[in-house]
Amino acid sequence: MTTLSLTAPEKRKRRRNILVLTIVGALIVLAFLISMNTGYIRLSPAEVIRTLFGMGTHNQSLILYDFRLPRIVISILIGAGLAVSGCVMQGVSRNALADPGILGINAGAGLTIMLFISFYPSTAAAPVFLLPVLALIGAGLTAALIYALAYKRHEGLLPTRLLLTGIAVAAAISAATIVLTLKLSPEKYQFVANWMAGSIWGTNWKFVGALFPWIAILLPFVFYKARAMNALNLGESMATGLGVRVEKERLALLAAAVGLAGSCVAVSGGIGFVGLIGPHLARRLVGSKHQILLPASALLGSLLVIVSDTVGRSILQPHEIPTGIVVAVIGAPYFLYLLVNTKS
Rank of each mutant, 00 (worst) to 15 (best):
V222T: 09
F116M: 14
S93P: 03
I173Q: 07
I137C: 11
L299S: 06
S118N: 04
S5D: 09
L316H: 11
M238A: 15
Y224I: 06
L136R: 04
S344V: 14
L30G: 08
L182M: 14
L30V: 12
G140Q: 00
G56A: 07
N204I: 07
T123M: 13
T310R: 06
G269M: 02
M36A: 14
E247C: 03
I34G: 05
A197V: 10
A328N: 09
S75Y: 01
M89K: 01
V29W: 12
K248F: 12
F207K: 01
V48L: 05
Y337I: 09
P279Q: 05
A83N: 04
V92L: 08
I325C: 04
I78R: 04
V327Q: 07
A46V: 11
V179E: 11
L4R: 14
A143Q: 13
A107T: 08
L43N: 03
G166M: 05
D99H: 10
L136Q: 04
L300I: 15
T2D: 13
P45K: 01
T7G: 00
S308R: 08
P295V: 07
R227E: 09
Q60I: 05
K188I: 06
I76Q: 02
T2F: 14
L253Y: 07
L82K: 02
I167D: 04
C87W: 10
L294T: 01
F212W: 13
G101R: 02
P279K: 05
V24F: 10
L149P: 00
A175C: 09
P9W: 08
W201R: 08
G272V: 05
I105N: 03
V169G: 04
R161Q: 11
G138K: 02
S263W: 02
Y147I: 02
A98M: 11
A168H: 08
S118W: 05
G209T: 10
G25D: 04
Y65Q: 05
I292H: 05
G138D: 11
A226L: 03
R15P: 07
V169C: 02
G269I: 00
I28A: 03
V20F: 13
V326W: 12
A256S: 10
D99S: 10
G331D: 13
Q190I: 06
H319F: 14
A124F: 14
A252G: 09
N341C: 10
S288V: 14
A98P: 11
S185I: 02
F207W: 12
L30F: 12
R15Q: 15
G209W: 13
I63Y: 03
V208E: 08
